[in-house]
Simulated assay, not measured.
Amino acid sequence: MSDAVEQGETVSPPPLRPRQPLQHTLAWLLALACLYTLYFAKSLLLPVVVAALFALLLSPLVAVFKRFHVPRTFSALLLLAAIGGPFTLLGSQLAEPAQKWWERLPELSAQLSDELDAFGRKLTPSEAPAPQTVEPQQGFRLFGWLREEPAAPATAAPANGDPALSDRVMQGGMEVMVKALGATPAVLAQFFTFLVLVLFMLIFGPSLYSTFIQVFPQVRDKQAATDLLEQVQRELSRYILTVSLINTLLGAVTAGVLALMEVEDALLWGVMVGLLNFAPYVGPVIGMLVLCLAGIVQYGPGLEALLPALVFFCINLVEAQFVTPTVLGQRMRLHPLVLMLWLILWGWLWGVVGVLIAVPLLVCLKLAADRMHLLQHWVKLIESPL
């Protein structure tokens, strides 16, 4: 080293080590910042994301109309009317039974609390223990900090159950109704924002995307970017339409079987289980719980009350184990554990709507990453066999 310096030779510095820990830290901080933004800006981002998924679903149909020289504005309005018409008709048919069950929620809650109180009294011993006398002057010091005040003498519970518990349940049901009514204006505003965004994305979205590809220099392969969007639109539309058809058939079969069993409001329960099935694992469990409640209301507390939930469980088992894997094939395979964690994440972020759009969003991200050859290890993890 000293000889090289004396001879005037330049000594190259040692190579710098890559700063992998710093990059990983920045990546985790970026991910946490994205989660923070998704959680606290959900009122803004929710209609935008749902509208983008819906526009991706309908864009291939608008492109087909465009080939026949149909203006995009007319085709977009026609598709929205064709989709919204049947849903409006179905909603008008289900409005009366849904309102009836909504009004019966406080009564059902009080009835269930009475049944639970009666079941609890059966489990308690018939002879109550002798009351212990507590001197009012003395107290009990909990962990040396809190002093417990002498308890008031307990009064005997009436024979028809604890009225305080029923009052609390009734009050809780009223609070839920008040919160739902208070959130109605915000929900309506988000719904109209969603409709406007879908319409504008279907009409002006393709031209904006084409301009983005041509103007921005970061997009080097212009044709590959165009093909990527078309492939994602086509495969996502195929997936959502297939799943929607399967869930519609599931709801129709469930409603038909429940109607044959003379279950009250069978059409309402069929539509409910069909919508809930868009959230795998979580939706069917909620559907079975609701059907158990409907069975208890109609048949009373007994084994007969479990029949509607048992019928739906059998139908859903056939659909989940045989129909859906056969129709979708291996290309749309999602690992159950990854899917459950994804559902929990989006349920925490955006509530019920987040759970419903979690699977289409995961499929969209997986397709985009697979076509762009990005994050291949994550794609293989999501598609890992059971």
Rank of each mutant, 00 (worst) to 15 (best):
V257M: 04
V232C: 12
A255P: 00
G302S: 12
M201T: 09
T211A: 15
S210A: 14
V243D: 04
P301E: 05
L195N: 07
A255K: 03
I286C: 12
P217M: 07
A225L: 08
Y299L: 04
M261F: 10
R238N: 12
L241T: 10
T254E: 01
A266H: 09
L260N: 07
Q231F: 00
S210M: 10
E230H: 02
N277R: 15
V257T: 13
F204G: 06
S207T: 08
G251T: 02
A225S: 14
A266E: 02
S207Q: 14
F204L: 11
L202I: 02
T242M: 09
Q223D: 13
G302D: 00
V263H: 05
L268M: 13
D221K: 12
A255Q: 04
E304Q: 13
L236D: 03
T211W: 15
S237Q: 09
P280H: 06
V243S: 05
E304S: 12
Y239N: 06
A294D: 03
T193D: 05
V215Q: 15
E304Y: 03
V285K: 08
K222Q: 14
A294T: 04
L228N: 03
T211D: 14
L276Q: 03
V257P: 01
R234S: 13
V196F: 01
A259F: 08
V198R: 01
V187M: 13
L208F: 15
G270W: 02
R238K: 14
Y281G: 00
S244P: 11
F216C: 10
A259R: 13
R220H: 11
M272K: 06
N247A: 10
E230F: 01
T254N: 05
V285D: 11
T242W: 08
L275N: 11
I240Q: 06
D265F: 05
Q218V: 13
G295A: 07
D265T: 08
F204A: 09
F191T: 03
